[in-house]
Structures are given as C-alpha cells and as structure tokens.
Design a protein around this nucleic acid. Structure first.
Length: 411
RNA sequence: GGGUCGGUGCCCGAGUGGUUAAUGGGGGCGGACUGUAAAUCCGCUGGCUCUGCCUACGUUGGUUCAAAUCCAACCCGGCCCA
C-alpha cells in the first residue's frame, strides 16, 4: 500500500502520472516525496510559461497556486520562461499556426509576467515566493536551447515519430481539417521536453492540454539517462462564459491586474455550473463550508478570490460597492479615477469616452450614447452633439458606460 | 516542380460589374427583464471631436463612366500527383 498524498497536493488534481500506489519513488509520487524528505533534498518542480501575452489571468494562476503550494512545502519551483520556444509558438490548443514573436517582445512579456507573479514583493502578497532561499529558480530556455547544434537537434527529432506527433490531438485535428502545420511546430514538444532534461525536473506542472508535452519530457529524460519526472496536470479553468476555457482571445478572463471592483463584479456572476471549479481551484476554502445557495456561493468565491489578490479589506469594499452599483446607486468609493488633463476642450461627449479608453473608438462611443448606455452622474446622455467647453464642467462627476464600467473624472 | 481549388469585415460565410461599409449566422457591446448571470426580446457592431470626410473584400498594377466582382503578375494556403 502506498502512502496518501497530502491534501494541498491533491486538491483540484486532474491527472497524475505515473500514479503507482507503491512506495517506489519512480512510480509513486507519495514514494518520491517520502524519499525526498528522508534525504532532505527538495523536489524540483518544473513549470514552463510561454511569454506570449503580457497579462496573467485566473486561468494561469491555478498552476502558479499549485507551484506555490509546493514551495510552501519546502520544494524548489523551477520556473522556465520559454523565451526560446515562444518564438516557435506552442501548437497546443491552437487551431492555427501561432505568430512568432521577436526576442524583444518576448523579453518584455517575461518581465511583465515576473512582476505580476510578485517579483520584489513579500511572499504573503505575491503569487510565488520569490524571497525564501532555495524555493525558486527562474530559468530561460534559451540558456540551453539557443546553443543546440544540428546533430543535437537531429538526436531530438530521432526520438519521436511522425505517427506519435500526429497522435497529438491538436495536430491530428489540424491535419484532418486541412489546417496547415509547419514542420517547426513538431519541434515544440521536443524542445519543451528537453527543458525537463536541462533542469533535471522531478515533477512537471501543467494544464491537461499539456499532457503530450509533459509526457515527452519523461521520454527525453529517459533517453538522456535521467530519472523521469512525474506529470501533474490541473484542469483548464472555464472562462466567465462557463463553457470555453479562460483565454484572453475569447474575452472571458479575469486578469490578475484588475482592480478589486472589476474582479469582484465579474466573479460574482460566474455561471452556477462552474462555481465549484472556481472554489476548488482558486481558493483554499473547505468544501464543507461552501454555502448551499448558488447566489451565496458566487459571492463567497468572488470575495475569496478578490481578497487573495487585493486583501480582505479591499475585497469587502468591492463587494459593498458592487451591491450598490447594481442597485443603481452611486455610492462607490472605489470607482477608478480618470484624468481630464490630456483632453483638449471643448470636447464632445463621445470624444471623451474614446479618449478615456471607455470605448474602443469614437464611433463606438457615439453608438453607445445612441443606445442609451452612457450616463453622467446617473443621468442618461442622449444628445450626440453634447459638448463640454471646459474640464471644470466635469470634474468630480462619474461617467458610466453600461452597468459595470464607471470612471470618476478628475482634473 | 506539375495540376487544381481558394484567399471577403472580430470569426464563419454570402455576394461574382452598377445606389448603400457589403445579405446571413456566431461572437461582442448596449437596453429591457432577473437572485447577479443564463434564457428571451429589442438595438448596435470599419475609422474620424461626424449634418460631412476617410479607409476597406490577399498584394500590386490594368480594363471600365463604374470593380469585392473582369484581366495580369506576385504573395499565401488546401487537395491530388511527383
């Protein structure tokens, strides 16, 4: 009989492989943990991130939360910034070839990522523990990938077959539907797998869509004479629509950078069907204490998640504000401010909306006004030609777009 | 390399010489409704401080009073053959 895994590790697991029950440290993670504890050697937990976008959202954060849990248990997080592989583009979950990024873009994205993960902040405020010695290694895979020579690349390619590659679901779908697959995309799983070799990983974290790549890491570690890593996969977080995965391109995300009010008011309306996933994957609340009313459940998860990012005080304030705003009252204290300094006066009302970034374009702003979606201090604007002659006319007023976007105008 | 089909707005997809930013769907945004949401119904969905002016149907040129629609070259892709 094998030992049980600790609850913090099991929470929210979608897949763990190999999942042997024995005490064999090569087949059972419980065995491996025990062996590590006995040898006082922390495990090396690999998580690769693809710095292709600049904003981290809750969907990403479930992996970081798990990585943090390993850190807090004394293990070493090996965060691999895929600066080299980002220039290829991960074909996972993609229906088309990804755009390749320039080295400069990738580097800028990587910096933004680390900042959002909490670089420079104390562990209690940050997503990852950046400060405790021995808990974090940040590596870039260009360190080892950029220097590979052709014979080494060929060795990598030789470990896998076209049939294996085409067995990967995304490739199969694309091939089957006639969507182009460039040859270099086959290199991605191999290079990501080689990352595991380069950092001698004991366990790799990933979403369920990463199973192929994580398994590839095991194959390559074996090929290069290393002990293969465990693969620990977490579910893909459904987005705010409750159906598709959370993804920026689908517009169903909650960004870690969002303010408390925006975060809370988005989260309090996640569809009931996915509320439990959010509670499991994004909070530490004990399921025994989850409220039974669906509406209360939404509020609980929204409060807990917002608090984990902004602190309980700010989250509670956001909760109160959200209730007020929905009730149509204008009491919010935490309405973000927008400066009028850059607006040239006289200014048309629709120009104001686009210049302040509430609307994507001034044409859209006109349409919103026509559609009755714009209010100033609670009063609906209807006149397209409305013009303000000076900033002083607007200072201190609250401009509202739709039900959830508010901005307090300041000089 | 050869043959063949194709590249339309955020996405899919009509249109195949003639008012009009270009049918329809999806998605998105706004309004009503509601426990927030969903569902449903309604409106909007290229840009511009806009009673008008720009830019648009792969790219560049051409034919024409007039082109997304015809012609040419080029670029990109699918399929079949090599």
């Amino acid at each position: 009989m094998g030992q049980a895994l600790p609850p913090w590790l099991e929470r929210g697991l979608a897949d763990l492989f190999p999942a042997g029950e024995s005490a064999d440290p090569d087949q059972s993670l419980a065995g491996r943990l025990q062996q590590a504890a006995g040898a006082e050697r922390p495990l090396r937990i690999k998580l690769g991130i693809d710095p292709t976008g600049s904003d981290i959202h809750l969907g990403h954060s479930i992996l970081f939360r798990k990585l943090r849990a390993f850190q807090d248990a004394g293990h070493t997080a090996v965060l691999i910034i895929g600066d080299f592989t980002a220039r290829i583009g991960d074909p996972s979950g993609k229906s088309a070839t990804r755009v390749q990024l320039s080295a400069a873009e990738v580097e800028a994205n990587a910096d933004t990522y680390l900042t959002q993960l909490g670089l420079g902040q104390p562990p209690e405020r940050a997503l990852l523990d950046f400060t405790t010695p021995g808990r974090l290694e940040v590596r870039r895979n260009s360190e080892w990938l950029a220097g590979l020579d052709l014979p080494q690349v060929i060795e990598l390619l030789a470990t896998s077959t076209v049939g294996q590659m085409l067995a990967k679901e995304e490739f199969a779908n694309r091939y089957g539907s006639g969507t182009p697959i460039s040859l270099h995309e086959f290199l991605y799983p191999l290079l990501q797998g080689y990352d595991s070799v380069a950092v001698a990983s004991d366990l790799e974290l990933g979403g369920t869509d990463q199973k192929f790549n994580v398994a590839m890491g095991r194959d390559l570690q074996r090929h290069f004479g290393q002990r293969p890593q465990f693969g620990l996969l977490l579910p893909i977080l459904p987005g705010l629509d409750g159906v598709q995965k959370m993804s920026k391109s689908l517009g169903n995300t909650v960004g870690l950078n969002e303010g408390p009010l925006a975060m809370y008011s988005k989260l309090e309306k996640v569809p009931d069907a996915v509320a439990d996933h959010y509670l499991t994957l994004l909070t530490d609340l004990d399921p025994a204490h989850w409220p039974s009313s669906p509406r209360e459940r939404q509020k609980t998860l929204a409060l807990a998640i917002t608090a984990s990012r902004h602190g309980l005080e700010a989250a509670s304030a956001a909760q109160a504000d959200a209730a007020n705003l929905v009730a149509g009252e204008m009491k919010a204290q935490t309405v973000p401010e927008a400066s009028l300094a850059a607006i040239p006066f006289p200014a048309k009302a629709f120009h104001l909306l686009s210049s302040l970034g509430l609307c994507a374009s001034s044409s859209e702003a006109r349409r919103q006004i026509q559609g009755g979606g714009v209010r100033l201090d609670g009063e609906k604007l209807t006149d397209l030609t409305l013009e303000f002659s000076a900033a002083s006319e607007l200072e201190g007023k609250v401009l509202q777009l739709g039900k959830k976007t508010f901005v307090r105008l300041v000089p």
